[in-house]
Amino acid sequence: MINKVVKNAVEATQDIQDHMTLMLGGFGLSGIPENSISALVDMGVKGLTCISNNAGVDDFGIGLMLQTRQVKKMISSYVGENAEFERQLISGELEVDLIPQGTLAERVRAGGAGIPAFFTPAGVGTEVATGKEIREFHGKKYLMEEWLTADFALVKAWKGDTAGNLIFKGTARNFNPLMAAAGKITIAEVEELVPAGELDPNQIHTPGIYVQRIFQGSGYEKRIEQLTISK
């Protein structure tokens, strides 16, 4: 079996270099690669382009990498709830490409699936369509969007095995399986790493072919942004 298991986030991320493009899984703070982000902050790698639906909050997730000015550009769909982000954006320190969430998901999916471009109705007639090819199919207008790929994809799963197979939990799945397929090198951190053979193949969400490195993470905070309960 191909050996994919690494000791921890430090070992997994050690060859990530300045000015690389990264994909980071997660929606809000749910399903984010907490351990890999910490390792990148400690490492101090700079000038990164980060593709991620959100940018974390001021003191957690990608927000930590913004505080240390490691991010040159964000490609996201929604970046609210992050004052440092807004400050860097308005001051011009940070470049941001805001794209519709479904377009972002599909561009990443396309990157992993070898589809260089596709047509979507999202953004027709808006500033998102600026400079893009518009084509009409069956009387409706669509705009062309291109795939996204990355030097590294950093994903987080619930369970994984030594063959790189992943299972996600709840809505922490979100962008993770798409990004796992779209990274040239995909680093998966999991809450529980088991020997190959212990996960039911029927239940696998991400087949191991997409994962080059895997480790069992530690100290997961799994912060909640909006705690809402019923009595």
């Binding site: 769909s77 929604y78 941001v96 519709p100 969430q101 479904g102 377009t103 979507t120």
Partner: peptide
């Protein structure tokens, strides 16, 4: 306001 469109455009 620079928060982004999220899924609204889709």
């Amino acid at each position: 306001m620079v928060k982004g469109m999220g899924g609204a455009m889709d």
